[in-house]
Write a protein that binds this DNA or RNA. Structure first.
Lengths: 243, 243
DNA sequence: ATCAAGCTTTGATTCAAATCAACATAAGTG
DNA sequence: CACTTATGTTGATTTGAATCAAAGCTTGAT
């Protein structure tokens, strides 16, 4: 079902990875860290547009994103698509598959990407040995649950501009945590994909971008976005705190 | 922050609990099952309208619902409420607290309830000892993630009647799995709470109920609902499969 | 039993976002 | 490069759900 991808047999090591603080728990000594390298079996490259995994595929591994950008999405029986998340370097993807041993969404690379393949059996074995890793995995899953709670609030209660403001703030915050600019973004997704995530149509997303631009809150040119006035965005997202 | 509740020191045992197949993994021998009883420290009663836990409270335990019915909800800075789920007997509540060690939602009893208090430290200790329990906890969290994915699809893509149909079908399915009627429900929540969960206003929920009733799909009288034509509900929720 | 408060239903009107439509811009491809 | 296709913007119109409003039911308390 997936496009062919290169399976690299190169030796991979979390212990040397610059994303370690994002994917992995902190506080291990170097000896334990060596053992933890066993969670990652191999790396895998995924080309832009290709599937990392697909709905219905057997679940065997979680994936830690090393480089690149993904979306996860589900579709209803009559073909409506819902983007359920956007994932970037250092984030874990594939948690949906644990419950049934089959994936229940598609994960698609929005740019050329590389992931660390972490066989779930390895994760479970090492989690029993290392309480810190166990705790870490629990937190990763809980974080995803809490994120989705927030999305429910967005979709259930927020207006189009509030949703887009929240989306932009979340994106820059995560990019900033990875050492990228707090003010400039090059979006990896289309207006339609943003809209799908936020429960809006692409025209509505485009209009909200234009509105923010007219108001001098952001500068937009296609996928390039510069945040001129982050406080204004926060105020739109969260009016009460600012009145 | 919570209303006072009775802390019962009675000896509790999963090994004898009729909800065991819902809360706990299957496949243990009776000796291991005895050890697993340690996961539950005590039971706690929660009166209708009272909080099981509140946003901001320290997270120490997960709760398995023995009897009763809960809602979980979050509120935005300016006071908008979003119900993030309804939980019934045999379900686990409190997963939101794991990531930050503080709860990020309120859990409120919609009827008098009793829960098993499972200190998270106990769960983690026993999970390291018993791979089946470890796997079970992972599945519980993954199931919650997948449920929320489905809610995102509902809120992002579905119309009011489709949302209500999905909600009713989900509810009867879960009640049926607990040995209750597949056709008759007494709702534990108000129209407003249903609306909050589904991203709708209470009037819209009421109108959708009335519409289904006029069409002979359900019989409604306040909180009482009888499903006359479940296939029609499935068709509304999921038109493609039926055309 | 009576009253008050909370919930539910229904109708009239408004409004935010969807839809329909046209064009502009960018990105790929042979 | 020219041409096709994908993506993005903007305007006009429609529409589904929100809002505003009023009345009917239930439930629980005095």
């Amino acid at each position: 079902m997936n496009q062919p991808t290169i399976q690299e047999a190169i030796k991979v090591a979390c212990s040397n990875c610059n994303l370690r603080e994002l994917c992995m728990p902190v506080g291990f000594d170097s000896e334990d860290m060596q053992k933890l390298d066993e969670v990652v079996a191999t790396r895998r490259r995924v080309k832009q547009g290709d599937l990392l995994f697909a709905n219905g595929e057997e679940f065997t591994s979680l994936f830690a994103i090393r480089t690149g950008f993904f979306k996860t999405c589900i579709s209803s029986a009559d073909g409506r698509e819902q983007v359920t998340g956007f994932q970037m370097a250092g984030e874990i993807i594939g948690l949906d598959g644990i419950v049934s041993d089959f994936h229940s969404c598609n994960a698609i690379a929005l740019e050329d990407a590389e992931v660390c393949v972490m066989p779930f059996a390895n994760i479970e074995d090492l989690s029993r040995e290392f309480p810190l890793l166990q705790r870490h995995m629990h937190k990763v899953m809980s974080r995803e649950i809490v994120r989705e709670n927030g999305v429910m609030m967005l979709l259930g209660n927020m207006r189009a501009e509030e949703r887009l403001a929240a989306f932009l703030l979340n994106l820059v915050q995560r990019l900033h945590a990875r050492g990228l600019s707090q003010t400039e973004i090059v979006l990896r997704m289309t207006r339609e994909e943003i809209g799908s995530y936020l429960g809006l149509k692409l025209e509505t997303v485009s209009r909200a971008f234009s509105k923010f631009s007219e108001e001098g809150i952001i500068e937009v040119k296609q996928r390039y976005v510069r945040i001129i006035d982050p406080e204004a965005l926060k105020k739109i997202f969260n009016p009460q705190t600012y009145c």
